[in-house]
């Protein structure tokens, strides 16, 4: 009995503290909500991405740390986006010191075609003789960046079209 009587004011106090807590929490929410409102709207209207896609977006925006410099994932050298094998080191040393990896990965040619490009770079772009590395470089390029048969005109890239509902009045 006496215990209960003594607890009553504490109960009141704790109720008050709870109330104050809720009020503080709500106002914090409002303060966070107001400046964040544009982002919330952007979020609600965002395109939806799978976890893998989100993952890759974030990855692309990462500043590469020391230990990411030579990371290889699923056979791809992450920093350059190139296919990784034992010959990649020659590509990195002889090719990527001058131009972007994208110049290689977006192109396709047979062995002779790649050889012609090297010849052209040597004659007009100041490329030094590749020496003993040349056959390894050609092996690498011929194996991984060979032409695909496309016909006189390829189909539209149906797999990569992002279908959407066109809003019309």
């Amino acid at each position: 009995m006496e215990n209960n009587r003594n607890k009553a004011p504490i109960d009141n106090l704790s109720l008050l503290i709870k109330l104050i807590n809720i009020i503080v929490f709500l106002s914090v929410c409002v303060f966070i909500y107001l400046p964040m409102q544009p982002y919330i709207n952007a979020y609600l209207k965002r395109p939806t991405y799978s976890k893998e896609e989100l993952d890759s977006f974030t990855k692309k925006r990462m500043v590469f740390q020391e230990d990411d410099w030579d990371r290889v994932e699923h056979g791809i050298h992450v920093r350059t986006g190139m296919i990784y094998d034992a010959n990649f080191k020659y590509i990195e040393a002889k090719c990527l010191s001058c131009h972007s990896a994208k110049l290689i990965t977006q192109n396709r040619a047979d062995r002779n075609g790649w050889q012609q490009m090297i010849k052209w770079m040597r004659e007009t772009q100041g490329l030094q003789d590749l020496g003993e590395a040349e056959p390894f470089i050609l092996d690498y390029l011929t194996e991984h960046y060979a032409p695909k048969e496309l016909g006189r005109r390829p189909n539209l890239d149906i797999e990569n079209i992002e279908w959407y509902v066109l809003e019309l009045d």
Partner: peptide
Amino acid sequence: SFSFVVGMNIVHGRNIPIGMRPIIL
């Protein structure tokens, strides 16, 4: 605050350099 808005943990959130925001924002 991003996580609060997005309602989930941002994958690799710790690796986003300061001054950058996730693409969806």
